[in-house]
């Protein structure tokens, strides 16, 4: 391991870590729920955090590409560097009709889908008429 190269990589790391990526997000409304879909390439379930505080949903995903383990370790090893070790972060103020306590999320192939049910009061309900 070339020590001088390590120093260069640490500077690179620091430079890229300043970048926060805002992931592309789809918003879909259904009669009973909303769905948000985020592109988070490289993210794993344990690297994603979803929090709601005072009506603001914060998505954070920390995608650490360890340079020593996964990347180059020698002189002139990088040829192109278009994505870095930056974190994904997106904050969205959510509507009051969302029941955030029933929020669920799933992550597949680097795509996170968050399901936000609407509050029951807002749903159209069919009321059965019982025979007397």
């Amino acid at each position: 391991m070339n020590t001088n190269t390590t120093a260069i990589q640490q500077r690179e790391h620091a430079k890229h870590a300043e970048v926060t990526y805002r992931p592309g997000t789809d918003f879909i409304e259904f009669s009973d729920r909303y769905e948000m879909v985020f592109d988070l390439p490289g993210a794993t379930a344990d690297s994603v955090s979803l929090t709601i505080d005072e009506g603001v949903l914060t998505l954070e995903a920390s995608v650490r590409r360890d340079l020593n383990e996964r990347g180059p370790s020698g002189d002139n090893a990088w040829i192109a560097r278009e994505f870095g070790v930056g974190d994904f972060r997106r904050r969205v103020r959510i509507g009051e009709d969302i029941d955030d306590e029933r929020m669920t999320a799933s992550l597949t192939d680097g795509v996170l889908t968050v399901t936000l049910p609407k509050r029951a009061a807002r749903q159209a309900r069919r009321i059965e008429i019982n025979p007397s």
Partner: peptide, 9 residues
Amino acid sequence: AFESVGQGV
């Protein structure tokens, strides 16, 4: 329903 807050690339 979803107002984006904050910045980023």
